[in-house]
């Protein structure tokens, strides 16, 4: 089995995310990191490889992003991927979800994986949808939010929470699965793996090499035009108590509740 894991570089959680009003795009300056949700996808791939139910020949990390996104690939490799691919091209800037999914599907087509894994959401874009777009282009079955996955020669038995409770779905491979963050506890990379990450094979692709139609990507190829950023209706800020002396804090909470006749 060959597994491709889609990973993305996102602003570090501690960085205040903002939109650049002049371009309508995310301001991507500042500290960045591998999307934390994607570490669960890499871990899921590693557990399949180590689980022994099926033989995993290779785990390939794939990203689409600017030059700097190579760091997300290094992190993915330090967590266990065997090699990585970076789709990077000026023409991709400003791609919307549909264009990003199309471009990633083109890269995956060349790789012919048996399983594509991805995170439940990107920490910056929060679209939850790349998996379904990629699957449609590849003509593969797909599920999102999977929190348990048993792999066997017959395919994947997946569990996830949907609107009416937990669903169990049997999926044939090749398939595209986005994993929920409850699926596993990602490991930490060893120092040796971090040091070795840059030595693993890394392939850089421009859109032409991936067979991507330039008219379908980038801001021009995207079908959604975003703009008019505005602030949400102001909500009066709540009262904040820093807990220093807990007895005092509790007294304040009770007084607050009392005032509103909540006790």
């Amino acid at each position: 089995m060959k597994i491709c894991v889609l990973v993305k570089e996102v602003p570090d959680a501690a960085v205040q995310k903002r939109i650049d009003p002049s371009t309508g795009r995310m301001d991507r300056s500042g500290e960045k990191n591998l999307n934390p949700y994607d570490t669960h996808a890499i871990e899921a791939a590693m557990q399949i490889k180590e689980g022994g139910a099926v033989e995993v020949e290779e785990i390939v990390a794939v990203t689409m992003g600017p030059e700097s996104a190579v760091r997300a690939l290094h992190k993915a490799v330090s967590l266990g991927a065997d090699r990585s691919i970076q789709l990077t091209d000026e023409a991709l800037a400003g791609s919307d979800v549909a264009a990003t999914g199309y471009a990633l599907a083109k890269v995956l087509e060349r790789e012919k994986p048996d399983l594509v894994l991805l995170g439940q959401q990107s920490d910056d874009g929060e679209c939850y949808t790349i998996g379904a777009v990629v699957a449609e282009h590849l003509g593969m079955p797909s599920l999102t939010q999977v929190i348990k996955m048993d792999v066997s020669a017959d395919g994947l038995r997946c569990e996830r929470q949907a609107e009416y409770g937990y669903d169990t779905v049997q999926v044939q491979t090749p398939a595209v699965i986005s994993v929920g963050d409850a699926i596993n506890e990602p490991r930490y990379p060893s120092l040796k793996a971090i040091m070795g990450a840059k030595k693993k094979p890394l392939e850089k692709l421009a859109i032409g090499e991936a067979g991507i139609d330039a008219s379908q990507v980038g801001a021009d190829g995207s079908k959604v035009v975003c703009g008019d950023f505005k602030a949400p209706p102001a909500k009066s800020a709540g009262t904040i108590i820093e807990d220093e002396d807990t007895d005092e804090t509790v007294e304040k909470i009770v007084a607050w509740l009392d005032e509103r006749k909540l006790i």
Binding site: V97, E136, H137, Q161, A162, E163
Partner: peptide, 13 residues
């Protein structure tokens, strides 16, 4: 809802 996200994204593609 979950299915709305999946169907909507697949349909967009």
């Amino acid at each position: 809802g979950l299915l709305g996200f999946e169907v909507g994204a697949g349909l967009a593609a």
